[in-house]
Design a protein around this nucleic acid. Structure first.
Lengths: 226, 226
DNA sequence: CGCATACTTGATAGGTTTCAAACTGAGTGG
DNA sequence: CCACTCAGTTTGAAACCTATCAAGTATGCG
């Protein structure tokens, strides 16, 4: 079931990526399970690796569920430095997989995390902060999903995701994901995502030199929608 | 700004409600801020009480944001035993208020929580579990918001909320909230919530003896929608 | 009893999904 | 090197659904 995954790479990540990790997890612990995979490869199902907490080290991971009608719904896009648990409850049916090539995650058991915190209390505070940031992000995502029109959803997604990608207020970003991913993430069809991108371009809010390249021309237009 | 709130009640909660709280928070700490309020009263703004972590002790609290267009979006409904932080990020604009009368919350500083955990490591594990359950719940809520039709959203909301209310698979629940709250929580208009309730009744999935009383007649119909 | 709040139903306009088709670009094999 | 393939993107048209405005009904409380 881990077919295709590279386990325990000797040199899993380059230095710049690692800097996104919390202090004590910065250097990989020998007890951590490190996985690297291409886009679409599963990181862990709900059964296997239960109880593990994963830290995204490089690339991008998506946590999602397949609904009875066959629709995929992405509940979380995880960038390097984000943590994710698959053990949220009794019958949680979420899957975690790489959303881009060369995605690297490190898995820790809860017990191991506790040991590391005991050795370094500062790590505990950092993780606590990470978890509450994670909650805050999910709540903002709920706000996006709750918006009425599709353009509003796309506009606020772009603002939110751009800020996460560059941790600032960038004027240009390169989307690491497809329109399908965006659609499944903000709860509209991929065609509507396209139409909204076109609409935002038409209104002068953004520019699309290439499909994946998004230039923010007029930020206030985007903000006024959400 | 705390007008109307009763601070530090001597006997804030009855025994049955307290049992929902994690072990060490079960007995109120003298350093906790205990608040009790009627429906609609604000528990804390984003400025005041920053850094506090609240535990809902009795009643029901709603965490929400008012959007530029005036729409209220509820990102979380919190039942007794749930924890909530208002300090998720730099410019978080969420508000927390009582959703029903006689709602009681207890506020702890992070420092105090850390001290309590240091004294009782088991509390730390319980809180960690609570936090991950909280994340899992938000992700399931994202699934609900991501559903396509309104009936699907209402159906899955009813299943989810019924299970939370009785921690089981009840056949009848009493909704503690209005149609407006439900609407703002699942991202549709209150009129559509009504229509979906009617539609579900017509299909024989539920029965509505009174507007707030929901009998689950045929659970599989509800489940087949989500 | 009267008022206020909550709930329900109706009609219409507007937006989104869906199905379809065309277009683009990158990678591959001949 | 080019044609080909395939995944991703974009646009079009029609059916469907939902928001909105509006009005009416119930319910609870003073």
């Amino acid at each position: 079931m881990d077919a295709g995954w590279i386990l325990r790479e000797t040199k899993p990540v380059n230095e710049e990526r690692r800097s996104a990790l919390p202090t004590a997890l910065n250097k990989f612990d020998s007890t951590a399970i490190v996985k690297k995979g291409r886009r679409g490869q599963e990181i862990s199902s709900q059964c296997a690796d239960a109880g593990y907490i994963f830290v995204v080290v490089a690339g991008l991971a998506r946590k999602f569920a397949i609904q009875p009608d066959g629709h995929r719904r992405i509940v979380n896009l995880l960038l390097p430095g984000d943590i994710v648990s698959l053990d949220g409850g009794p019958d949680e049916a979420f899957l975690l997989e790489a959303a881009v090539d060369s995605t690297v995650v490190a898995g820790y058991t809860r017990r191991r995390i506790e040991e590391l915190i005991a050795a370094d209390p500062q790590l505990g505070r950092e993780l606590q902060q990470l978890v509450f940031q994670s909650i805050s992000r999910l709540e903002r995502q709920l706000l996006i999903l709750g918006r009425i029109t599709a353009v509003q959803k796309v506009a606020s997604f772009l603002l939110e995701f751009a800020e996460r990608l560059s941790s600032g207020r960038p004027t240009a970003i390169t989307l690491p994901i497809t329109r399908y991913d965006i659609a499944d993430f903000i709860g509209i069809s991929s065609e509507t995502v396209c139409r909204c991108m076109t609409e935002l371009t038409r209104r002068g809010a953004i520019a699309l030199p290439r499909p994946r390249e998004v230039k923010i021309i007029n930020r206030s237009i985007l903000e006024d929608m959400g």
